[in-house]
Design a protein around this nucleic acid. Structure first.
Lengths: 237, 237
DNA sequence: ACCTGAACACCGTTCAAGT
DNA sequence: ACCTGAACACCGTTCAAGT
């Protein structure tokens, strides 16, 4: 007990966030939390670490969460992390990939709810709404999804894969719009896709950073207005 | 010499960037660089530290540059920083404020170059172009300008002041557009301003992160297309 | 195969002087 | 008034075992 008490007493240095953060930390770090197995069989520790990283990111630490704390949360020595991830960036990347996957799932679910034969601009708005809603629901996570330049080196091909999937989902809608005559015949599909992405990302980021000050319930309305302007712009060619 | 040699020999830990970065570091840290005064008179050290922070940020460290290295660059003990800045965030904030001021200056310069009686949508495009050009010219700095949630606590009122100035510059143009009948009478000025900001920020960020892959010379064209779509959307109401 | 312990070279920040 | 030195509680990562 002495070790834990000492740690708790000391004033937290700057690296810690101002937000209290529930910190379960039910057991002293030397002993393993009750009810948790003594060794993880393959895959479980990896998953547990990603889960801990996701929690830490979401609690507001963003990409600055520490590898050592993630290990502490699941009750293993920090060195154990290196058996599953090459370095901290890889652990972050795994958490970030989960984020993109979740967002893609929500977009798909939203599209599935649209009535059949919905005009393209309504479908694009639905996609955008789902995107922004997801981002606003997990601000710290969303920022991590963009930060840390995880694509700078060629590593993390899984990350690129989810993003490619999301991109092609939008591209498909745009192609459909052109085919149905709802978007100009000469539309550059890739460019239109990126224009939409830039728009939803821009509003999301400004809202998250508090640069656009919108009352909680109005944030999505804000995003929707921007989206409408962009879609109208695309439609006008 | 022994100290410096030892430091140089050791493998750089993860915190350091992969990019080589020119690192002048002309003198061993204990001795002051030749030709630099032994003590700074008031204001100079502050300015020198902000300069060093700006350089470190621009060299790719972003907001993860270290206070200790900034101090080393100007040849003072890292503790000296605390005489001019409350903490690392304050030093970062000072660097970030310089960034926004620079961007605002470039936007003003660009507007000054516009022919008199230019239609509003052309003026808005000029503003947007200058904004994106600035962001793309200093990617790491631009990301730092948005990162770190420097506005989260109420500190750094100077930062809020520059941003308010930039916002009102755009708002003025939009009002002018409404008055001249170039934008719909019912236009929500604040909302239109934020819509434009979100657009230019969105493209800038995606371009910087390499999510939009544009050949170097084409990046601005990309941004311009998005901007045009948004302006058209705003004009259509 | 999977995990741990000790060590290393860093951090940001505080306390207590030095000139 | 302005700067320094030593110390503290952290980091991420490496080396070398332990079971």
């Amino acid at each position: 007990m002495s070790k834990v008490a000492k740690v708790a007493k000391v004033a937290k240095p700057a690296r810690a966030r101002a937000t209290p953060a529930p910190k379960p930390k039910a057991a002293p770090r030397a002993r393993r939390p009750a009810g948790r197995r003594d060794t993880f069989h393959h895959g479980d520790l990896r998953r547990a670490l990603v889960g801990a990283a996701l929690d830490l990111v979401a609690e507001g630490q963003g990409e600055t969460f520490t590898l050592r704390e993630a290990a502490r949360r699941v009750g293993v020595n920090h060195r154990a992390v290196y058996h599953h991830f090459a370095d901290k960036r890889s652990l972050l990347a795994a958490a970030v990939i989960e984020g993109w996957r979740g967002q893609l799932d929500e977009i798909r679910a939203e599209l599935a709810k649209q009535p059949a034969d919905q005009p393209t601009h309504e479908r694009l708005l639905a996609i955008g709404r789902a995107y922004v809603r997801y981002a606003l629901a997990r601000p710290a996570h969303y920022r991590a999804m963009f930060g840390a330049r995880l694509n700078a080196d060629g590593r993390f091909t899984d990350l690129e894969a989810v993003l490619a999937e999301a991109t092609s989902l939008v591209a498909t809608e745009i192609k459909r719009g052109v085919e149905r005559g709802e978007l100009p015949a000469g539309t550059d599909v890739l460019q239109a896709t990126m224009t939409l992405w830039a728009s939803v990302h821009g509003v999301s980021d400004l809202l998250i950073e508090g640069r656009i000050q919108a009352r909680p319930g109005r944030a999505l309305t804000y995003a929707e207005r921007l989206l409408r302007a962009v879609v109208v712009g695309l439609t006008a060619g």
